[in-house]
Design a protein around this nucleic acid. Sequence first.
DNA 1: CGCGGAAGAATTTGATCAAATTTCTTGAAG
DNA 2: CTTCAAGAAATTTGATCAAATTCTTCCGCG
Lengths: 220, 220
Amino acid sequence: MDEAGTRKIPSHEVTYGRLRDMILFGHLQPGQAVTIQGLIRDLEAGMTPVREAIRRLTAEGALMPQGNRRVAVPELTPALLDQLAFVRLTVEPKLAELAGRHLTPALIDRLEGIDDEVDRAIRAGAVSGYLEANHAFHFALYEASEAPILVDIARSLWLRFGPSLRVVCARYGASALPDRHEEALAAMRAGDQAGLARAIENDIQQGIDQIRQAQAEGGV
Amino acid sequence: MDEAGTRKIPSHEVTYGRLRDMILFGHLQPGQAVTIQGLIRDLEAGMTPVREAIRRLTAEGALMPQGNRRVAVPELTPALLDQLAFVRLTVEPKLAELAGRHLTPALIDRLEGIDDEVDRAIRAGAVSGYLEANHAFHFALYEASEAPILVDIARSLWLRFGPSLRVVCARYGASALPDRHEEALAAMRAGDQAGLARAIENDIQQGIDQIRQAQAEGGV
DNA sequence: CGCGGAAGAATTTGATCAAATTTCTTGAAG
DNA sequence: CTTCAAGAAATTTGATCAAATTCTTCCGCG
């Protein structure tokens, strides 16, 4: 048998996934700096995997080179949020519409199951659980679009969005969060692609409005 | 304080830039594989810089992991081109419109100078010169938008577009290529932001049509 | 006798780590 | 306030190990 190590997945992939999730689900706050040495300690990984993970996430916009040799989670200014909103509201409804053409009953069932998790997390006030289940719902749907370039772009947008969303959740609680998924699921069952795209658009718009409101109230 | 510093550029940045330009300007063909060892030889760089350059460009969609351990320049299928077209036609006219709000006479002069280079390259049939000058024109404009997220996305799209564009140029010659830049420059001088966005949209549409036509005729 | 395929060896390539070097930051002294 | 030195962090090279591809050889079959 094999020994303890899973040799199938390279260490740099694992390290990338861990760091990505830390950013995506808000375990690193906007503005927070990351160092190679610090991640070597925290993630218990070697230097090469950590370096590559940082480079990848920098290329995806999840990290930004700050000044000379530092890298940090970027803060979402109102101007940046406008740009994010513009692209998200273009790309993600399109993904939903495309996905609507390839939906199977099995996938709809799976999405309902994920949405149940979202609801449970909201009722329990579990911020991390909400963020992860909400992400899972959207990307399980988007993957069905069979449009890898659009999915890539959506991933990058979510990485830029995640840290700030976490801050909002922590401030106002998870109960005030958007869940237009019922609307989306109804459209899926009805085979209504345009309605599905609209439901996703509303869901996204609501999340963006939450962050805009939080920004207006100060303290990012 | 001291003059615009001669900050030393790390080797991995230089290596990234070189490899990126090789892809962007079609010196690597669609489907062509790249190896770490090969790039160490060709770019005369160390292993770490090459690895990081590959990771970054993979994250940007300029390279794709092929099967088990290889990475290659992805081929642009009709389905992928549709996705690219959708996002390019959304993001780049928007970039043009935003840039239109920050145009200065100096920048317009500079863009005219770059467009002269484009024309010269077309008349000379210089494919590489055309690709580089055309890229310079668009991104000199886009940079003025002060919308870094949209610029990032546009860069990623161009990286996915470049190799196939080169193939089309090489096949039909550079003289059949789009140059709606005059239209764009006229709109800039008139302060017509909507017209500028339309001109850029036409320019992009023309480039996409060229590749669609080439794909329809076979041989990527 | 020639052809084809499979098994195994050799070479190439990728992944990871550790050490050496360079560069930047920081804090104290002039 | 500037300058210099010490320390920490990032960069880079080289070495080592693991995985995969390629090449070779040999056996069986037509």
